[in-house]
Simulated scan of single mutants.
Amino acid sequence: MSGARATGDAPWDLSFLRIGLLVTAVVTVVAALAVGVALSWADALTVVIGATVVTAFFCVSGLVVAWAGKVDDTWTMPAALGTFGLKALVLFPLLTGLPADGWPDRQVLAWTVVAGALLWSGVQLRWVWTRQLFYVPPPTPPGEQQRSPENPAPRG
């Protein structure tokens, strides 16, 4: 054995979802209160809806890409693109079906989605920048190497 992990064996860390959910919850409460006071409480509810949609998008994408990576690393890009395309196909008719002058306010929803996407992107960027990432599969730790005829147990 070469001592390297097989494709798809690397653990997928989804801790950015927990951090993203926490940050989004705090920012959503503050933004909804500010919008409620400045505009209306219906618009504040629109902020909550927009934040929920963005959060669902990032959580679903993270879970699907992690699942695909556990199966095989080469599946992650098709899984990410396919998930994005499917979500866009579902969301586009729903958003275009909203009345231009009704509730929820499309402009408030649009700004919430933009702000939420930027927020989640920032969370993911910070998460990636603070992790030790390998460009090649990391070697198996010495205590976990399997014994084989090419790699016999050490003689002591």
Score class of each variant (00 low, 15 high):
residue 3 G to L: 10
residue 4 A to R: 15
residue 4 A to G: 07
residue 6 A to E: 12
residue 7 T to A: 15
residue 7 T to F: 11
residue 8 G to D: 00
residue 9 D to A: 15
residue 10 A to M: 11
residue 10 A to R: 09
residue 17 L to G: 02
residue 19 I to K: 06
residue 19 I to E: 07
residue 21 L to C: 09
residue 22 L to V: 15
residue 23 V to Q: 04
residue 23 V to W: 00
residue 24 T to Q: 12
residue 25 A to M: 10
residue 25 A to Q: 01
residue 30 V to A: 12
residue 31 A to V: 10
residue 38 A to R: 11
residue 41 W to C: 01
residue 43 D to K: 04
residue 48 V to R: 07
residue 48 V to N: 05
residue 49 I to D: 08
residue 49 I to R: 00
residue 50 G to Y: 08
residue 51 A to Y: 07
residue 51 A to S: 15
residue 53 V to D: 01
residue 56 A to Y: 03
residue 57 F to Q: 12
residue 57 F to N: 14
residue 57 F to R: 11
residue 61 S to C: 06
residue 61 S to P: 00
residue 62 G to Y: 03
residue 63 L to I: 14
residue 66 A to F: 01
residue 66 A to K: 09
residue 67 W to H: 10
residue 69 G to R: 02
residue 70 K to T: 13
residue 71 V to G: 02
residue 71 V to K: 13
residue 71 V to E: 04
residue 72 D to C: 00
residue 73 D to L: 03
residue 75 W to H: 11
residue 75 W to S: 00
residue 75 W to C: 08
residue 76 T to V: 07
residue 79 A to N: 07
residue 80 A to R: 03
residue 81 L to F: 13
residue 82 G to S: 07
residue 83 T to Y: 02
residue 85 G to I: 08
residue 85 G to C: 06
residue 85 G to A: 13
residue 87 K to I: 12
residue 87 K to L: 14
residue 90 V to T: 09
residue 92 F to M: 13
residue 93 P to A: 09
residue 95 L to C: 04
residue 95 L to T: 04
residue 95 L to P: 00
residue 97 G to L: 05
residue 100 A to Q: 11
residue 102 G to M: 09
residue 103 W to P: 02
residue 107 Q to A: 14
residue 117 A to V: 13
residue 119 L to Y: 00
residue 119 L to I: 04
residue 120 W to Y: 08
residue 126 R to T: 14
residue 127 W to L: 01
residue 127 W to I: 02
residue 129 W to R: 15
residue 129 W to L: 15
residue 130 T to I: 02
residue 131 R to E: 02
residue 132 Q to N: 11
residue 133 L to N: 12
residue 136 V to R: 14
residue 136 V to L: 13
residue 137 P to G: 06
residue 138 P to H: 06
residue 139 P to A: 15
residue 142 P to T: 06
residue 142 P to S: 10
residue 143 G to P: 03
residue 145 Q to C: 06
residue 152 P to T: 10
residue 153 A to P: 01
